[in-house]
Design a protein around this nucleic acid. Sequence first.
DNA 1: GGCGTTGTTCGATGAATATCGAATGACCGT
DNA 2: ACGGTCATTCGATATTCATCGAACAACGCC
Lengths: 105, 105
Amino acid sequence: MQEHYPHPEMKTVQLAEVLHALSDPLRLRIVAALAAGEERGWGEFDAPVAPSTLSHHMKVLRQAGLVTHRRDGTRCIVALRPELEERFPGLLGTVLRLAPEKMGA
Amino acid sequence: MQEHYPHPEMKTVQLAEVLHALSDPLRLRIVAALAAGEERGWGEFDAPVAPSTLSHHMKVLRQAGLVTHRRDGTRCIVALRPELEERFPGLLGTVLRLAPEKMGA
DNA sequence: GGCGTTGTTCGATGAATATCGAATGACCGT
DNA sequence: ACGGTCATTCGATATTCATCGAACAACGCC
């Protein structure tokens, strides 16, 4: 865990990188889950992978500018980055509308 | 070259696979060029890679359901698949609107 | 039939990716 | 300060990927 997580400046985020981040089923599920509700804790995605693997995917999403990570005591809160909509208007909405992974909790 | 190119059934095309195909800058450029005009010959994309590499990318785009390949004598004509719009409405339009690669000829 | 043009396929290679378990570090209670 | 929870990092591995050059195949044309 980190005190402060590094987040890329939105203007440096490339479209191809965002698409790559979304091209993994698990990462797409995570983003869909965030878009369907509020921010949530790191561990509340019931991802079928080891913690170290989930950490890797979270890092990819963070570096692609899709999500933020924030410390809350011993927890880590994950949330969608609102500025993404300014950078790539309509992208996330379109992709998630077409995504079959309407995962719940 | 092939007499008949294999094209996947559109209903079997997965969103994640399409996103992955679009997540490479060169492939994104190729799709953008096709969307900006008509179908065009294989060799008319002035891609900065070896023919064998271009062939690889063309195969990825074909297998992801994005383009068709058609024989025309000794040439190969590449075109966007119109059914993609039925399968994933708005996706290609949204992505290409945001793509900086408005490449010409 | 032979030749040039046009893509594809076949290794080969180096880089990136997904995955895991184990070790580590940060924080909060007690 | 100690132990527990939570997430990251590290090393290892297996897979995939982008790239190239060389060899090959299909076609049209002479």
